[in-house]
Design a protein around this nucleic acid. Structure first.
Lengths: 415, 415
DNA sequence: CAGTATTTTTTCGAGGCTCGAAAAAATAGA
DNA sequence: TCTATTTTTTCGAGCCTCGAAAAAATACTG
């Protein structure tokens, strides 16, 4: 059962709320914060004065343009970029990238590397991640003491405690506790997140009007992934990152999937599946390890040109996605969908069959109202989500801590 | 964004927590409550003394048997049965029942009625519900002023605000705002809930060890329904009661479902589907309106006796349920499952194919650890859940109200 | 049976927090 | 320069929770 509210929780929670209001609004005045949080002006005044003194917020002569109004002008509050920094590490197929982000959310440094993740050993994989983080931390421009959090996103399944990668299509290795490893190595709290979940987090920040409380982000790539936000909360499984939309069953006993099972949505809609069908190979043909973006673009071009096996392959992908979404909508009610990843550029080929399939399912009654948006470039999205995730942690756990963490390293250096 | 915590919320929340602790534990002492809530002894003392004075809790010389210990004996706190009462109304196929439950959770009166729901008009349906409630409220043994809530459970889809039935298999009528109707008629707050969700609520109260934070209740009946608890919360759709497990797609374009679509899980696992397959009718055959329990028992008996079409029908039901659960487990991770309803008595016929199917899905890696429990009698479960739902409302909204509701009718009569 | 040990519950003062009202600050218009 | 207006801070009041100590209620002990 949930625990009672202690007296000191009050301040902590309201501090967190003020910080979060500032992060959302950018440069709100105290009055605006009072309005959005529902707290009184006096309380906001007290809390924000604390936060400014601690170096977490700064005053900035806000909205000079809007000072057409009479009366004392509003003073904008903004996040102090120097209050902390976080690292966002993204590990995907044959690619590793890291970005340093200041407390206000600006990227201050980054580095990218090509790897051969499929053939690397466990230790090589770990070493590369540790090394790229170390290089960033050794950057003389960066105050290492200010780095408060490392967030690592990976394609694949992570555990629900955000500690480890359990399984990933980018490597044959399994169960690597990246978060624990980085934490031990650098003494900085780390979390391990699923890439699609981070896409969803980023979409929420990018377009809060469209992606508010309930929406779905689907990654159309070599595999099929999903990030799901329900009732304003990232939806995760109880043991793992969950939301393995790509491995819902489309046709029992059907096409061979990369996961070794049969009939998964991915076995019809993943790049390898589209490629396999376009070449008219058997459904039992072993999934290929990778199909280049260029090759997929060529497939899509041919599909647009002539009504051949390529077009049929995309049609089947749409059908699988449609029935999958239909089953999903039976469980959670329809919501806006973002199609992310290289194959989202071919969504025109996928959409007709997808809509036709949804119309045959329980979600069909709403099928007109279901809207799709496409975003071909997943990497920036994942990195952005990762950064926001890490920053939210700093907001809540470090700058609005429970009694035990009152004197953290980070706070000291700012004061 | 969530709202700030005002100062007066504190007491309210902690009051609610104390009440809920008492409801869960039965007869806890103040010391026990302090332990489970994490609040100090002084706080618990203050709050419970308030609650006793207001007639919500009563002291009861607790645990006379356990008074073997030294020291001042613990005084048990329990819910005052007279503090309030709620009505639990359950409307299912051809059947209407109502129960009056006191604040401590004991049934004090009940009434049941057979109807012909499939042929009744909208007004007849509403009138029957209003009439049965009125008869209970006119009972001279009942203090009407103490009735604080009416909860109505129905098979079918309800809206997410718990106001209306949107669609139900028990009647051709749609969109009946039962909650609003009852509320207007009697001036008592009412809610409209989905039957399977109430099953899940009841299971949590009955066996909190097994059904704690994550579990699934599946109704195997004429149709297939589901109640889902995730992270300790009842899972509902954003617009409707959600969790329409029975209408996930098992085989695209497959057997004809009662909902008019094709290939739903229910079209293989609902009573009418089993009956249809056992008779070796076409998958396109119109679903029959009802199959009697006796007939289903006869089918099951034949299936156990000889390896004929009956056994095959149950096998197909198991397969559909298995693939459906497998897809569900891809999204939410495996969890304990309760199979409820008359067909749960035939679960021995269903289970082998079900497990075999799950093993072929993403949930398969855990298939050994997935445990099923059966409960053939859904009605008591639904009523129990309904009652607990209504009582929880009274606990939280009436006895631990926000500033506006401080002087409710109910409170006055108790004081 | 009186005295002691033990456990539960209440009492009481201290310390925090939020709130509303009033004051102070900062600007635009007259 | 003065006034109106809006934002922000200040200040006292009112709650709430907490810890420590006191009070209450029982079992053990000789």
């Amino acid at each position: 059962m949930s625990v009672g509210i202690r007296h000191d929780d009050l301040r902590r929670r309201n501090r967190a709320m003020v910080i979060s209001a500032v992060r959302r609004a950018g440069q709100p005045s105290r009055t605006e914060i009072a309005a959005t949080t529902g707290l009184s002006h006096s309380t906001i005044s007290a809390i924000s004065s604390d936060l400014i003194q601690e170096g977490i917020l700064t005053e900035s002569k806000a909205s000079e343009t809007v000072s057409l109004k009479r009366g004392r002008p509003q003073v904008g509050l903004s996040l102090n970029p120097e209050a902390a920094a976080v690292l966002a590490v993204v590990l995907s197929l044959n690619f590793l990238s890291v970005a340093v982000i200041d407390y206000a959310g600006q990227v201050v440094a980054e580095e990218q590397r090509r790897l051969d993740t499929l053939t690397m050993s466990r230790d090589e994989l770990i070493d590369e991640c540790v090394a790229i983080v170390r290089r960033r931390l050794e950057d003389p421009d960066l105050d290492v003491r200010s780095v408060a959090r490392i967030a690592l996103a990976i394609q694949g399944i992570t555990d629900s405690h955000a500690r480890a990668m359990l399984w990933s299509p980018i490597t044959p290795q399994t169960n690597i506790a990246f978060a624990d490893i980085l934490e031990r190595e650098f003494g900085i709290p780390a979390i391990m997140e699923n890439d699609c979940n981070m896409m969803a987090v980023a979409l929420r920040w990018r377009d809060p009007d469209r992606y508010r409380d309930d929406f779905i982000a689907i990654l159309l790539s070599h595999g099929i992934g999903m990030g799901l936000v329900l009732k304003g909360e990232l939806f995760t499984g109880t043991h793992s990152s969950g939301g393995e939309f790509g491995h819902m069953i489309h046709r029992p006993g059907g096409a061979l999937c990369r996961c070794g099972r049969r009939g998964c949505v991915e076995a019809y809609a993943g790049n390898y599946a589209i490629w396999r069908n376009a070449r008219q190979l058997s459904e039992n043909a072993e999934p290929v390890a990778d199909v280049s973006d260029a090759e997929m673009r060529a497939l899509a071009a041919r599909a647009r040109q002539t009504d051949g096996p390529e077009r049929e392959a995309y049609r089947r992908a749409g059908e699988a996605l449609g029935f999958g979404l239909g089953s999903l909508f039976a469980l959670i009610d329809p919501a806006p969908v973002a199609m992310v990843g290289a194959s989202a550029a071919a969504f025109d080929l996928i959409e007709p069959a997808l809509r036709e399939a949804i119309a045959q399912t329980a979600g069909g009654q709403y099928s007109g109202s279901i809207s799709f948006d496409t975003e071909p470039n997943e990497l920036p999205l994942i990195r952005e989500g990762c950064a926001m995730r890490a920053l939210s942690f700093v907001d809540q756990e470090i700058f609005a801590p429970g009694a035990q963490g009152k004197s953290s390293t980070v706070r000291k250096h700012v004061a």
